[in-house]
Design a binder for these strands. Structure first.
Lengths: 240, 240
DNA sequence: TGGAAAATGCTTGTATACAATCCTCAAGGC
DNA sequence: GCCTTGAGGATTGTATACAAGCATTTTCCA
């Protein structure tokens, strides 16, 4: 069927021209994933994407590989790409990693605060207020990414921004209703102005723990249910 | 000239067959980079690699893109790939990041020590003793990677293993003579057995700081010298 | 009528052809 | 003699053709 129409909403996002560089395609797909317009489990056929973006499969494959290395899409051989569905275990790893990294990086952030940074953060937080629920998720990711860039360590910032993107996938699978935390971000900006490291770290820890606590891991996020857990007693009866 | 011979040492490393999967090619290149058999700045022409590995450029390009996303090679448009030469600033970022991450992860490692892990670490440390200088560098990376895998957080382990690989590049550019630290790794294993977190963190901090201190950042690591800094006064004289 | 096996179509994997760009080297002008 | 400019070769960027594998459906048999 070569369903190009399904992905035309993606193509319309960026510059508007027909053929785009692979970086622009990456951006479009990244935004669609982080904004939950492409949900975990959704298939990403190469032909359909190539048609929507007006390029050949070559470029699409390069972009998909990049997204796969960032764990936003899952590539299975001869079975194509689909948006990654993080497992509960992976989800917990991501939150543990973020608590550790963002807490530690705050130490370096407080020594590096510049007015321009605070202004940029405030602008993002403001946009979150007026944005749709979908865009708010992406802006929330941008807020955290921008905040951690203030630590001035590109190596860590990059690793962290990947964790932040994956958090959006986790929320898509295990989130229940209520969205992120726009007002909380304004609180953080006020704390940044006081340079109170302990308070900032406490805030960040509670912020991340709060998001994690709002998730519901009982719902099966994966495509195939856990038969072992559901019907395991049958086997025990037969085996014994 | 299509100089395939230059890369035949790489092709001989893995399985020995002619055509290999992209993962095997990635492994071969990764080892050659980490073992300093391919030095920073070395060019990686796609045709030559394709010939050496007995595959087409398609696969080579995929592997090079992956190595580029891990910052082991640098991809410049229409100018091909070459082994990355980390800047002094990047080098310092990597060491800061490793001190932070590895120090913090030790906290989770000490709660998770299993005999099999200690045995695996001891085996790597032993191999370091008997290995050539080149292989010792790779084994040292493996040691740290294996150690941090004990923390049981795949997200952080992956980010960290990238930092560890990049450290090898940094040593290739800025290292002066003396190699790594084989005996020190045996010390760490003894400390692990005591479960003394504070001592472990102290050891790790000094270990990484010691390596960083042994580097010489005055030598120009980049291909093209810093003309701005060298000849900048000329422009100032003309401008004023 | 239900199930298993085969066939067909669709999607991905790999290689290759062609176009675009850059680098090198040589020739000409100042 | 040095710098600029142009042509040629070499290398990368992109698209496409073909092969290989999986999924679905259809058919056949019990």
């Amino acid at each position: 069927m070569n369903d190009t129409r399904q992905f035309h909403l993606l193509a319309g996002l960026a510059t508007g021209r027909d053929a785009r560089s692979d970086d622009a395609i990456y951006q479009s797909l990244w935004e669609a994933i982080v904004e939950h317009r492409l949900s975990p489990g959704a298939r990403l056929p190469e032909d359909a994407l190539a048609g929507a973006f007006g390029v050949s499969r070559t470029m699409i494959r390069r972009v998909l590989q990049r997204l796969a290395l960032e764990q936003l899409v899952t590539l299975r051989t001869h079975r194509g790409a689909q948006i990654t569905s993080p497992t509960p275990s992976e989800a917990r790893d991501v939150f543990r990693a973020r608590r550790l990294l963002e807490g530690a990086l705050l130490t370096e952030v407080v020594g590096n605060i510049k007015p321009a940074d605070l202004q940029a953060l405030a602008q993002i937080a403001d946009q979150e207020h007026h944005a749709s629920r979908e865009q708010a998720i992406r802006l929330s990711a941008r807020f955290h990414t921008r905040l951690m860039a203030m630590a001035g360590n590109a190596s860590l910032s990059e690793a962290l921004s990947q964790l932040i993107s994956r958090t959006s996938l986790i929320i898509a699978v295990y989130g229940r209703g209520q969205a992120g935390c726009p007002c909380e971000h304004h609180t953080l900006i006020k704390l940044l102005e006081t340079h109170d490291l302990a308070a900032l770290q406490k805030w960040m820890h509670e912020h991340l723990t709060g998001i994690e606590a709002s998730l519901d891991f009982t719902a099966s996020g994966d495509a195939l249910p856990d038969f072992e857990h559901l019907f395991g007693h049958h086997r025990e009866q037969n085996a014994s």
